[in-house]
C-alpha cells in the first residue's frame, strides 16, 4: 500500500514538472516564414500562362464560352460590360490574388489572415475547423478553410458571389466555383500560389494558374479607399463615366 501511494506521488510530481514553465507564451507558429507583405509579380489578367494580348486558356463549357464571347464583343464595340470594382465592389476570390497591390499574411493558430491593400479586404482562412456559415449567403471573399501539407498551405474556398469576374476582360465563373490555392515559399522572399478553379458549370475541367509574389524591402500596406474620389462611376446603362470633364 505504501509503495503504491509513493508511486502515485512520484507520478503526480513527474506530471507536475511537465507543465510548461510559462503557459502564457504561444507556441511558435510552424510556418511563420510565410508571414509578411507580398507583392504580385504577374499582371492583372487571370491567365498567367499566356502573353498579354492572347486569349486566356479557359476550358469553358459551351454556355460559358458564349458568355465570355459576348463580353469580348461588347468590349470590341466600345461598350464593355461593367467591371464590379469600377463601382467600388471588391474583386472577390480568386481575383484578389491577382491584385497589383500588396497583401499581408498573418498567421494565428486558428486563423490565417490575408490582409489586402486593395479596398482593405480581409480573408480569414480557418485552420482548425469549418469556416462560419456567413448567413448562408455567398460573399465576395467566400468561406475558406486551410491546412498544411508539409510546407504548403492549402486553402479551399467555396460560396463566392457569382457576380465577381476573374479580370477586366470579364472572365466569368459560376455559383458552383470552388477555389483551391496551394501556397508555398520558393525562397524566403518569394511566394508561389498555384490556384485551381473547379467549376462544373463554367469549365469542363479544373483550371490552374500559377502566380508568384515578392517580399519587397521596406514595403508597407497603404490605404486604398475606392470611394474617396471615384470620378469614373458606373452609369445606369452600364457605361463608365468621367466626372468633371466639360
Amino acid at each position: 500500500m505504501m509503495k503504491r501511494r509513493a508511486l502515485l506521488i512520484l507520478l503526480a510530481s513527474v506530471l507536475a514538472c511537465q507543465t510548461p514553465a510559462n503557459a502564457a507564451e504561444p507556441a511558435a507558429l510552424p510556418r511563420s516564414g510565410m508571414n509578411g507583405i507580398w507583392s504580385g509579380e504577374q499582371g492583372v489578367l487571370w491567365d498567367t500562362s499566356v502573353k498579354p494580348g492572347q486569349k486566356p486558356r479557359a476550358p469553358f463549357t459551351p454556355e460559358y464560352a458564349a458568355i465570355y464571347q459576348e463580353a469580348l464583343d461588347a468590349s470590341a464595340r466600345g461598350q464593355p460590360k461593367a467591371d464590379p470594382p469600377a463601382g467600388c465592389l471588391p474583386p472577390g476570390v480568386p481575383r484578389i490574388m491577382a491584385s497589383p497591390f500588396p497583401f499581408e499574411i498573418v498567421q494565428t493558430p486558428e486563423i490565417t489572415y490575408i490582409l489586402y491593400e486593395y479596398m482593405s479586404q480581409i480573408r480569414r482562412v480557418y485552420m482548425t475547423g469549418a469556416a462560419p456559415a456567413a448567413m448562408g449567403l455567398p460573399t465576395f471573399n467566400g468561406r475558406s478553410t486551410g491546412k498544411w501539407e508539409g510546407a504548403t498551405l492549402v486553402i479551399e474556398t467555396t460560396d463566392m458571389n457569382p457576380l465577381s469576374v476573374l479580370d477586366t476582360t470579364h472572365l466569368p465563373t459560376s455559383d458552383a466555383l470552388k477555389v483551391t490555392e496551394r501556397l508555398r515559399l520558393l525562397a524566403p522572399d518569394r511566394l508561389e500560389a498555384t490556384i485551381t478553379l473547379t467549376d462544373p458549370k463554367a469549365y469542363t475541367e479544373p483550371w490552374t494558374v500559377v502566380r508568384t509574389y515578392k517580399r519587397k524591402q521596406g514595403e508597407q500596406i497603404l490605404e486604398y479607399v475606392c470611394e474617396e474620389n471615384n470620378r469614373n462611376p458606373v452609369q445606369e446603362d452600364g457605361s463608365t463615366g468621367f466626372i468633371g470633364a466639360q
Binding site: G43, V44, L45, P52, G53, Q54, K55, L72, S75, A76, G78, Q79, P80, A82, D83, P85, A86, D167, T168, T169, N232, S239, T240, G241, F242
Partner: peptide, 14 residues
Amino acid sequence: LTSFPIAAHHSFAI
C-alpha cells in the same frame, strides 16, 4: 498590346 483587351483598367474604354 491592343490585339486583345489587356489589363486595362475599367475606365480605359472611355
